[in-house]
């Protein structure tokens, strides 16, 4: 069975997307990586690609990560979805649990990304 996974990461911060790409490429060079700067862009992207893993920031302009989840789930019903955010409020963790998505705390470090990638293992 192939270990190749398709991973879509959504974050309005270009620097965060660079960090995510850097860590994941080091750990899983075989994975196919896609990125989006917001929920709308991600929604359009998931009409053509079907990621196995999606991580999404919460606090983004136009559409929050929480708002984007329903559309992503509709387009990618089998994807594991993880909120990757600096918004560490218990209320956000509770909403993540309610939506049955994972939650990993920023900043983006090798350890944080290991938690995200563990949703695929």
């Amino acid at each position: 069975m192939s270990n190749k996974k398709i991973y879509l990461f959504i974050d309005d911060s270009r620097v965060s997307r660079m960090k995510i790409r850097q860590v994941v490429q080091q750990n899983h060079p075989e994975w196919e990586l896609h990125e989006a700067a917001g929920g709308k862009e991600a929604h359009a992207l998931t009409l053509t690609i079907k990621p196995d893993l999606i991580s999404i920031d919460i606090n983004m302009p136009e559409m929050s990560g929480l708002e984007a989840i329903a559309g992503l789930r509709q387009n990618c019903p089998s994807a594991q979805i993880v909120l990757l955010s600096g918004n560490i409020q218990d209320d956000m963790r509770a909403q993540a649990a309610q939506l049955a998505v994972g939650f990993v705390e920023k900043p983006i470090t090798a350890a944080a990304m290991a938690q995200v990638m563990a949703y695929m293992e």
């Binding site: 620097v15 600096g86 560490i88 900043p107």
Partner: peptide, 17 residues
């Protein structure tokens, strides 16, 4: 901007909790 976002949210998020 991202450093500020993470630090300020860590602080206010912790107060919220």
């Amino acid at each position: 901007s991202e450093i500020g976002n993470i630090l300020l949210n860590a602080c206010i998020g912790s107060i919220a909790n």
